[in-house]
Design a protein around this nucleic acid. Sequence first.
DNA 1: ATCACAGTAATTAATCTAGTTACAGGAGGC
DNA 2: GCCTCCTGTAACTAGATTAATTACTGTGAT
Lengths: 146, 146
Amino acid sequence: MRVSTRFSDSIHLLAFLKIYADQRLTSDLIASSIETSPVVVRRLMGKLRQAGLITTTPGSAQPALAKPLDQISLLTIFYAVEGDKPLFAVDPKTNPDCIVGGNIQTVLQQYYQDAQTAAEARLAKTSLQDIVDNILVEQAKKEALS
Amino acid sequence: MRVSTRFSDSIHLLAFLKIYADQRLTSDLIASSIETSPVVVRRLMGKLRQAGLITTTPGSAQPALAKPLDQISLLTIFYAVEGDKPLFAVDPKTNPDCIVGGNIQTVLQQYYQDAQTAAEARLAKTSLQDIVDNILVEQAKKEALS
DNA sequence: ATCACAGTAATTAATCTAGTTACAGGAGGC
DNA sequence: GCCTCCTGTAACTAGATTAATTACTGTGAT
């Protein structure tokens, strides 16, 4: 698994805050939707809070989105919870006395960065609003069938 | 680390086969350039052979590229050694009875795939020829300075 | 004061990667 | 044939990362 489910779970969490805004948003309730533990949820919320995406109140179950949905992109969320690690890793330890080993890192770095940037540009195009909209559409489809 | 150094090391290995084609290409020699063990090199070569990128002879140190350099893209190599796993993981276990948990996987799947496809398109644009050319250019720069 | 909850550290278990050891079998020289 | 060097692989080990769990401190509301 390349990128941990932290990213996926964080999107889930933020969408949950919006769609169930009328509920008491305890970490327990959120955890039951993600099917994880409340501690994992609180840790995720900690990262999202540090990134300025949500506000929380210690002791009180009232997390809230800090920005409008359409101003939170998937890329913003990605950086909040996973952004410190590159998607593609360059082997940092190769033989500097070899023509290949001595130059491969420099060469790969640029191509890897290009590929990562292309993926990030895609993530930047999608907002949490798109995610929430799509979730509601999918839900409506299900209900139409039942 | 998202993508293991297998990818990076495989590119290294293939470039090495080209640049040092005049040497006895034992797994030991290649390993000394990547700074890993000969077994790791032979395992990588196994995957590259299965993918049709190189030919090898059991018992004899003569691995060779199976295609022209410009017909091997970074994407081909990526698939050969890492291609079975997505770059972004969707949490497979969420609560189906929740509007978010029940639909998030379907929704994220598409966006994740788009991001991965964008990265892959970038990798497809670069060939092993580009890598080898760049390595030789970098090496020439170093030699010019000394 | 009490109760429900957030925030967070520490530990555990599962998974993945890379490295190592070990060994079976092919290639080629003698 | 036999010896040596090599590939191909399996099995095991060590380290890193993730997610889950336990346990605790401290806040907010009643």
